[in-house]
Design a protein around this nucleic acid. Sequence first.
DNA 1: CAGTTCGCCTGGGGGC
DNA 2: TGCCCCCAGGCGAACT
Length: 277
Amino acid sequence: MPELPEVETVLKTLEHMIGYDVIKDVVIKYDKLIAEPSVAMFKERIIGQHFRRYKRLGKYLMFELDQDVLVVHLRMEGKFYIQDKDAPFDEKHTHAIFYLEQNKVLLYHDTRKFGRMYLYDKSYSSHIYPALKNVGYDAFDPHLNASYLYNVTRNKKVSLKRFLLDQHYIAGIGNIYANEICFRLGFHPGLKVCRLTKKDFEALLVATRTILAGAIKAGGTTIRSYTSSLGVDGKFQLQLKVHGRENEPCVVCSRPIVKEMMEGRGTYYCKECQKKK
DNA sequence: CAGTTCGCCTGGGGGC
DNA sequence: TGCCCCCAGGCGAACT
């Protein structure tokens, strides 16, 4: 499940492998993949455009083309592959084929079909794109600061974890890193976010950025061994301290990590190290 | 309006 | 072995 670090890694790898190639043709095999515009309009507009800039906002990939910007959200299982156009591929789960230069193809693979693509006129500012209307500051955006987070949470009744998952405030965190950030902060995931102080939010930003940057670095080292596949796998989870570690000893106090369903999500934490204040 | 639940999808795993 | 059901999880729509 790609979160900000994995999306960043995919973006950098695609930038390296695609560069400024032109899209010569495109085949969409699952129409709902294209959220907007229509599939016919998507094809008509995108064919002939070159890749120009590679950007990211939270978990959204943004490929700036000549006139438009291709916005992609991988959701749970979306993956890109680059390979020779005649090489075999998984027909069942490959939903889009972009034909590039030098007999290369960019394949979009998504077992569960949750991922979506959008094509917008890039002359409009990205904050008016419908797909991004609920996306706030990227976790690494320098404009995102503790005062802002403190001010927007004064009367919020939601939990810390739910707040971390809300892309409207900090964009890029998913369930895995939300669990990790709560652990790093020493806060119970169910702690009401309105009880955090400005100092807590300073620590929250440091923890968030440290963890995400560490994961990007891990992804960057992992990606070097990749050949044509750009998928995300469990290698990123090597450094996780609580997520997926049910019943394993806490790295700090050795008590077993517990897993509970909180607000419909698998939540891993240490009952000793993480208190509700 | 803020907060909660549901639906989208499919493969994998547990229970029987 | 086989079948059914549940779970995983991001996000927007629909609901309270």
